[in-house]
């Protein structure tokens, strides 16, 4: 199984690589794990991970700077229809557009928009930083993603994905109000939290993603 983490200069990918490598080794899952910025490689992937930290429009600009990359990701998701995982800004890039700093178009995989978190209460601090427990709202994911049933994951974000279709919401996290923590449909999944920073719980999630057969 070829697992590719997309490298588009959005930040350090070592911890993500290390987490996947550790999970595969510990659980004896045979994977060919690669960090790649080559759209031709991505065509051959069985599973694709789109990371991303920082600012939405910077991430999007870095992604489209690589010739053929946006199309390769698009083809992987829509034509090959293989398991795809977006993490943090990688998840937000799955939206139609973001309003972070300047309005920027996303990849449009999930009918949603990325907006600043505006909590109902003034005592809630922004960014949402730290460990928070999620609530699985789409029980059809219970079997493949047992890791999502309960537990704390590490979040760090000031913007949230607002989904137009409630059926795309897989899990939520409460921070002054319910925020989308996991969104997905068919072969694609996006997580607002960082599995690679979420210690054992995150490793369980990565294991579930590696075994997922959507």
């Amino acid at each position: 199984m070829k697992v590719i983490i997309v490298n588009y200069n959005s930040g350090n990918l070592a911890s993500l690589y290390n987490s996947f490598f550790r999970v595969a080794t510990d659980r004896k899952i045979k994977i060919n794990l690669l960090i790649s910025n080559n759209p031709k490689e991505i065509e051959k992937a069985d599973r694709l991970v789109l990371p991303g930290v920082g600012d939405f429009s910077n991430c999007k600009n870095q992604l489209i700077k690589i010739k053929g990359m946006e199309q390769a990701v698009y083809d992987f998701v829509n034509i090959k229809q293989r398991p795809f995982l977006g993490i943090c800004i990688g998840m937000q890039l799955m939206a139609k557009k973001s309003f972070e700093r300047i309005e920027t178009k996303g990849l449009g995989f999930i009918d949603s928009e990325v907006k600043k978190i505006l909590p109902d209460s003034k005592i809630i601090k922004i960014p949402h930083i730290g460990w928070n427990n999620i609530k699985l709202v789409d029980n059809s994911y219970k079997k493949s993603f047992n890791s999502l049933v309960e537990g704390d994951y590490y979040f760090v974000h000031s913007y949230e994905m607002v989904c137009s279709r409630s059926e795309d919401i897989v899990a939520t996290v409460n921070y002054g109000k319910d925020i989308v923590a996991v969104a997905g449909r068919e072969n694609i999944l996006g997580v607002q939290f960082h599995p690679e920073k979420s210690q054992k719980k995150g490793q369980k999630f990565i294991n579930d993603f590696l075994s997922w057969n959507p």
């Binding site: 930290v53 910077n58 974000h157």
Partner: peptide, 8 residues
Amino acid sequence: ANNFGSQC
């Protein structure tokens, strides 16, 4: 903050 986001 502009380059990497406030969160970092």
